[in-house]
């Protein structure tokens, strides 16, 4: 479903070339629950951004759902992102002036989905993530765990191919983190593909496939 071949990404930092990714090959199948671990600067976030089509590789090719997305235009990438990718961020990234419900609706609004259809989906998502009571609250009236649940509901609203979570528990206490993690695991149980970037070994241990990265390369790929 996701096939990266020879993906490389180089940044210029202070006039010096930094190889964030060096010829990474990676295949992720449908329904996998995968974690990417590694120290800071090992290239795990860059890899996630490239999978999420937020960033373009300098070399290599990327195939998503049997379609080569390496050379798409910015607008086409935006459309693919909208349809197939769901992001969950460490700092939630909810729009502060919008209510929880409106935040969840945002991708559907951008996609121009019919309001009636949006309402049906929103009701279902709110129920699924236990947010019925909180639909009318703004992010500053929600707890961290609730914010991240809103973010996950938002990521799921377009029925994406893959959920990409960048340190989803990094900004939460241990208990809430576990809770959010179990929500993501439920997505996986329902047949979704989940990719988590983390440097918490405990979280990594819960996933079914663990990638370890170091200096822009995948150094370990364990399953089971």
């Amino acid at each position: 479903m996701i096939r990266l071949t020879g993906i490389a990404r180089t940044f210029l930092v202070g006039g010096e070339e930094v190889h964030a990714l060096k010829a990474v090959d990676l295949a992720i199948a449908h329904g996998e629950y995968l974690s990417i671990m590694g120290p800071s600067g090992s290239g795990k976030s860059t890899l996630l951004n490239i999978i999420g089509l937020l960033d373009r590789p300098d070399a290599g090719s990327y195939e998503l759902d049997a379609r080569n997305v390496t050379a798409l235009s910015d607008d086409e990438l935006a459309r693919v992102r909208r349809e197939k990718i769901g992001f969950v961020f460490q700092f939630f990234h909810l729009v502060p002036r919008l209510t929880a419900g409106q935040n969840i609706e945002l991708p559907m609004v951008l996609a121009g989905i019919d309001p009636a259809e949006r309402r049906t989906r929103l009701t279902r998502l709110l129920a699924e993530y236990g947010l019925e009571e909180r639909a009318g609250h703004r992010p500053d009236q929600l707890s961290g765990g609730q914010c991240q649940r809103v973010a996950i509901a938002r990521a799921m609203s377009m029925g994406p191919t893959v959920i990409l979570a960048d340190e989803p528990t990094g900004n939460l206490d241990r208990h809430t983190g576990q809770e959010v993690l179990s929500v993501l695991e439920r997505v996986h149980h329902n047949g979704g593909t989940v990719v988590i970037v983390t440097h918490d070994p405990e979280i990594g241990a819960r996933s079914h496939r663990r990638l370890r990265m170091l200096d822009g390369a995948v150094v370990a790929d364990e399953k089971g």
């Binding site: 607008d75 935006a78 909208r82 349809e83 990234h93 729009v95 996609a111």
Partner: peptide
């Protein structure tokens, strides 16, 4: 965020 959620530059 809007871009990550699939907003095009035009939008």
């Amino acid at each position: 965020l809007l871009k990550a959620l699939g907003a095009t530059g035009g939008q």
